[in-house]
């Protein structure tokens, strides 16, 4: 877009916000600087009026540190208290009922709700003292169950570990969003997930797809993952969860030890990997995650 067009758009927007028509004269700034300052002016005006708008700009890092500090002070935000961030994804666009329910449970004076887009709400909670991951998981699960019960709508929740101060929330936001993305690829059966619970999925998610293709080819050749049926996949998952223990896996799956051994033998014949051996188990887990990442269409 040309400079003149952008300038006019920003001046129109400023007029909408303030009701005053501005024009430029004796402008000592260059074009880029002019547009930046006008944008800042619009944001500042909106932000001065609306704490939620400021919090959204803060989380998405649209304003600089100096500006954040000054506005956090003007909104009397406790910068030094521990804070947590809970990222809520609705299956369909949320409505005012969702906002009402959330406000009624949590968003008192020191908690804040930010509307990211029609399907995502962010809850920022200020704590009196630091909370453990387990406590945070309980809070997130409570929010999930309450929203689903009251609204009868499907909700997924991602959260990060508690931040020691307000400024750490920018990082928490990035982590919670990443956790939601990773959940949507690797943990589809999990409705509430913490960034710290992503395990190898977090690592694999950061890899380019070419590297995944190469790894799978190096270790499994042209193996077709469709050959691993649902039952075998479940067996593998439980076997990994139970620390490669045959006895505990058989107990968890309610199958005889010999049935489990038969399934593992069958998998070895199919893939060449004996997941009773630690190194093969690691290779299998990584390859399965990489395969899921490859199937996912996100860039």
């Amino acid at each position: 877009m040309e400079y003149e067009e952008q300038l006019l758009e920003l001046l129109d927007e400023l007029q909408k916000e303030t009701g005053i028509r501005f024009s430029l004269s004796d402008n000592a700034n260059d074009e880029h600087e002019t547009l930046r300052k006008l944008t800042k002016l619009i944001h500042r005006y909106r932000g001065d009026r609306n704490k939620a708008f400021f919090l959204k700009e803060f989380l998405t890092e649209e304003i600089d540190d100096k500006e954040i500090k000054s506005r956090a002070k003007s909104f009397r935000i406790n910068e030094e208290a521990p804070w947590s961030l809970i990222y809520i994804e609705f299956k369909k666009a949320y409505d005012t009922e969702a906002v009402s329910v959330l406000s009624s449970i949590y968003a008192s004076g020191s908690d804040h709700m930010v509307e990211e887009d029609p399907k995502h709400l962010i809850l920022l909670r200020q704590h009196k003292k630091s909370v453990t991951d387990e406590e945070l998981s309980d809070i997130a699960t409570n929010i999930h169950d309450t929203l689903e019960t009251e609204l009868m709508t499907s909700v997924k929740i991602a959260y990060d570990t508690v931040s020691s101060d307000f400024y750490g929330l920018q990082n928490s936001f990035k982590h919670a969003k990443a956790a939601m993305d990773i959940r949507n690829i690797f943990h589809l059966g999990t409705d509430v997930i913490g960034y710290h619970e992503l395990g190898l999925g977090k690592l694999v998610y950061s890899l380019p797809k070419e590297a995944c293709t190469e790894f799978i080819h190096d270790h499994l050749g042209d193996f077709d993952f469709e050959q691993i049926d649902s039952e075998t996949r479940h067996t593998i998952n439980v076997f990994f969860e139970k620390g490669l223990s045959i006895a505990e896996t058989a107990r968890e799956l309610f199958v005889h030890r010999n049935t489990l051994v038969y399934r593992l033998d069958k998998l070895e014949k199919l893939t060449g990997l004996d997941i009773r051996r630690f190194s093969d188990a690691v290779t299998m887990e990584i390859a399965l995650l990489m395969n899921e990442l490859k199937k996912n269409n996100t860039p």
Partner: peptide, 13 residues
């Protein structure tokens, strides 16, 4: 919402 069903979970807030 239109199924006329109510759910109750273990984590009641």
């Amino acid at each position: 919402k239109d199924r006329d069903i109510a759910m109750v979970f273990q984590n009641y807030a």
